[in-house]
């Protein structure tokens, strides 16, 4: 009898804190999405009005599409490049630690710092990018990367990709080290080429890691806030607006708390799909 209680008591404090500070606010936000509230007076219950407005809101769709673009690019570049670099570094390489440390290093910088650096790189007059393009004779390609609605989003995503790749690389490296070398050796003896080894042995064995990487990458891309906030504040003309930032600006700049909450709920529901996938993968991994 006593044994059943004791673990719960151990966890009681963090559990209580967690319920108050994480679970309850989530539920409260759901409630708020059905109200209209300016943060000062009391919330007015308005049912599904916020959601009705949402479905007709062009800015919402713009932000959603931007999130989608972010997601796709995040899946394409950091994942592919990260895997490639991990494959290289899992072999016998001199200075491997140095390479790993350098490639991972962007992750230790605050996103706001990275946003600042890249804003500077993207400066139309005198920024590193335009300067380099001019220097190698491609002056025609120079432009205001962050001020041009066509390129702004990709410029911001670029900075985020630059940061995220090292992290993906490390995750894949961890997954690769768990693949037993005897399997690889056996396949070499059997005469498999490098590509065949990769495609038919390594890739399938990497599946659990790949799932984790994809889920984390997707969740990270949906959370993107710091970069947008630092580099463009959602502009120009909402071309870099994403759900996480739109929600923030509606709630804390325009004082439309109820509407901001509705956006938050949508964002949360989208994330929930990936969170569920992640949990499922962890459970599967544990059962093995």
């Amino acid at each position: 009898m006593k044994r059943k209680f004791v673990p719960w008591m151990f966890l009681l404090l963090p559990l209580i804190l967690y319920t108050i500070w994480v679970i309850a606010p989530t539920i409260y936000t759901f409630y708020l999405s059905f109200t209209e509230w300016d943060g000062l007076t009391s919330p007015q219950f308005i049912g599904l009005e916020n959601y009705k407005y949402l479905f007709d809101d062009p800015t919402f769709y713009k932000s959603l599409i931007n999130n989608l673009k972010w997601l796709i690019i995040f899946l394409a570049f950091p994942v592919v490049v990260g895997l490639f670099l991990a494959m290289l570094l899992s072999q016998d390489i001199k200075w491997a630690r140095g390479f790993k440390a350098s490639i991972y290093s962007p992750m230790i910088l605050a996103p706001v710092v990275i946003g600042l650096i890249w804003s500077w790189i993207y400066q139309p007059q005198g920024g590193l990018l335009n300067n380099t393009l001019t220097y190698i004779g491609l002056k025609s390609l120079t432009r205001g990367w962050l001020s041009n609605p066509e390129t702004a989003l990709y410029a911001v995503i670029g900075a985020a990709v630059w940061r995220h790749t090292g992290y993906v690389m490390l995750l894949f490296l961890a997954g690769l080290t768990s693949i037993s070398p005897t399997v690889i050796e056996a396949s070499k003896i059997d005469g498999a080429s490098a590509w065949q080894r990769f495609r038919f042995i390594i890739l399938p064995l990497l599946k659990p890691t790949t799932v984790i990487v994809i889920v984390i990458t997707m969740i990270q891309s949906l959370r993107a806030f710091d970069f947008v906030s630092m580099m463009t504040r959602g502009g120009p003309f909402n071309s870099t607006n994403v759900l996480a930032f739109y929600m923030y600006s509606e709630a804390f700049r325009n004082y439309n708390m109820g509407y901001g909450a509705a956006i938050a709920v949508i964002l949360f529901l989208i994330m929930f799909v990936f969170i569920a996938l992640y949990l499922r993968q962890i459970r599967k991994g544990e059962l093995e």
Binding site: P25, T29, I219, Y248, M257, A264, F268, I275, L279
Partner: peptide, 17 residues
């Protein structure tokens, strides 16, 4: 599972409360 879930909550979602 509940704890892990908290790891991925978009912070924006719980900001006002």
């Amino acid at each position: 599972a509940l704890m892990l879930f908290g790891m991925f909550i978009p912070y924006q979602s719980i900001l006002f409360p």
